[in-house]
Amino acid sequence: MKVSAAGVSVSIDGTPILDGVTLTAAAGSVTGLIGPNGSGKSTLLRCLYRIIRPQQGAVLIGEHDVWQVPARRAGLLRAVVAQDQELDNDYTVRDIVAMGRIPHQRLLERESATDRAVVDEALARVGIEWAQTRRFATLSGGERQRVLLARALAQGAPVLLLDEPTNHLDIGAQLELLDLIRDLGLTTIAALHDLDHAIAYCDAVVLLQHGRVVAAGEPAAVLTPQHLADVFGVRAAVTTHPLTGRPHLVFAAAAAVLLAEEHAS
């Protein structure tokens, strides 16, 4: 199911955060939202989470305006792996993954055999079934992200939204998680901080700055040295990754490049 934003504007306390953002993420693709801090990535996601209501424009999943359908219906359209990991509780891994079934359950309805099967499958899919009786708070950061991903899978929604899923993870856990997310084959939108992840794992990227879309399209077409200099103020070059053969970004501060050029001349 495709995801789109049509002329979305949000301002908070009079400060414009998003300013007429229009974009489309194709069904089944992985789209990276990139941009400097404060560019509006998280705010755009929060519109899709149904936390911030756009003052203008609409966010759509398929043909459904997220803010026009009932909240519970929105829970069937998209699942969220957010940045908030609440640890001050005693929920087990299985308790948390089972919460993914909430939008499917009627009030007072007990967990059905289908619910249990879906939860089992989700736990297995992310490779965390061994920990299902463990308390969530006692897992490592990478394991916790897998649990939240399993909860999103248990939700059974066609669209997956992630806000900086690799934050605070070690490099091994980062790459494992991204591989896993790619393999799920869901329509995925992820705010990413690491531009190299965007170029390596995304089918498309959307570059945001000051709440506007600067460029959108294939990663190689968007993550050009020119765009990166304009938006992030860094010098960048695209090389080939010596181990994978994929495109790879390398960066340097603009001043460092100037210094190096001075040395060379």
Binding site: I51, G75, L76, V80, D84, I102, P103
Partner: peptide, 23 residues
């Protein structure tokens, strides 16, 4: 008693709860 499950989701954080289809 009817809405206990939503309370569980809310204790996991605002974003988590919203993502699970809770107003």
């Amino acid at each position: 008693l009817v809405d206990g499950r939503r309370l569980n989701a809310l204790t996991m954080g605002e974003t988590s709860a919203a993502g699970l289809g809770i107003d």
